[in-house]
Write a protein that binds this DNA or RNA. Sequence first.
RNA 1: GGCGCUGUAGCCAAGUGGUAAGGCAGAGGUCUGCAAAACCUCCAUUCACCGGUUCGAAUCCGGUCAGCGCCUCCA
Length: 481
Amino acid sequence: MPLYIYNTLTRAKEAFEPAIPGHVGIYVCGPTVYADPHLGHARGPIVYDVLRRWLHYQGYRVRFVSNITDVGHLTDDADQGEDKIQRRAKLERLEPMEVAEKYMWRYFDEMQALNVLRPDISPRAAGHIPEQIELTETLIRRGHAYVANGSVYFRVRSWPGFGKLSNRDIEEQEAGARVEVREEKEDPRDFALWKRADPEHLMRWNSPWGVGFPGWHIECTAMSLKYLGDGFDIHAGGVDLQFPHHEAEIAQAEAAGHAFARYWMHHYHVLLNGQKMAKSTGNLVSLAELRARHEPMYVRFYLLNSHYRSVLDFTDEGLEAARNGYLRLLNAYREVRRYLPQAPSGSHPGLEQALQTLYRDFSAALDDDLNTPQAIAALFNFVTELNKALAERPGRDSLAKAEKAFAELGEGVLGLFPPRVLESQLGGALLEGLVGLLLELREEARAARNFALSDRIRDRLAELGVVVEDTRQGPKWRVEV
RNA sequence: GGCGCUGUAGCCAAGUGGUAAGGCAGAGGUCUGCAAAACCUCCAUUCACCGGUUCGAAUCCGGUCAGCGCCUCCA
């Protein structure tokens, strides 16, 4: 069964067919690196990470490109206002490129904590000025752009396709309703490809039109075409980018004579306690803050537990529920790993059946426009059967397959079980030895029916994050993540 | 004003024509010194409301109400 993707361009689920069989090119609009990444920055990367992992699992060779915007993104989309990086640089008394560097690494660090695979290419806008200039020249040559007072603007009126992605009739957009008309533009809807740099502007490059800097939209067109080629497969980003950013990207590419992305995916936003996350209201939580309080996998699980095209309301209560659900899956995985070495040979019919169901349901869910909540439900159903089987000392063959399922579906595709959550966080023989010693003493206390002492040991260990459980085979312990 | 989305149990969340997945929380039980984990049972005759189409609708159509997103910095 093929993968179906909801294509914003056609507003329908379409069977995905790569331009080149066996290969997939994906471009995801990345962050403008001028502030600490917040919770909202996590959804897109996680969703498209799962897309990438799913395609990879199915044998595709994926090239995953996600840009870093380090120039050209103004504080105002009307081609006025200040460059965000520059503004931050003044605030922090840093070079603009120091700002970009600093926040880019913070972004990468948070993505790593969320177990998001690094893109194959993370192109930076400032490193692709020649490509952007060249594309701009082509647009001028073809009559779709014009020079005005040292800046270059895209002539929106010259491109009838403008508006097709966001279903907007450009002729009906009221001129200057939202946008202050800038004198030098032919039409208020025209957007900048290149901006003349005022003397005080810090980031500046030479161009055929004088000293300036690139417009925001042009970078993604130039870089996606450079690394993925004409007519590449998938272009993705947040809904907020649909208009005008993606619309502009399409116009720039096609007006320059290139076929552009064939599938467009847009994820919806995360609300925080029912309110939109916005810098202006302060209703934000940075990923660093979240990470200080919770295992990042809870967040990843939480986000994947709703569909990417629906608005998700992030609450403390929801995070708690996500945590508990996640631990149910994790504990089952850990149990499999624990029992596998001592499992008898043979297989377990019930487990074999459950595995088959898991693979079937999981695949069907992801093939249906990345229905991760349903894929997770398949995992839960499997875990119930697995836990039942586990009580019957299942054979090694089936158990090994169960471990493989967790590894390739749970971690390989959903990215929910990185090594750090599978092992004890401290790790090492010292911890093993110390806990072993305490449990030995505790067993002696229990044998002597000194439950005050045995409970104290258990409670104190729990406070330290070591959960102790008594079983028929003796005490079991694990480090809570 | 334009474009679009949503309304499913206490909470989260799948399901787009065939008789309500899954998780969390809660109740009872098994196990346990007590717990924990795990397992078993229970937990929406009903899918915002009103009409319509259909043998049959949470799912399609019309309307009403409510909430939300984008169009403006934003993922």
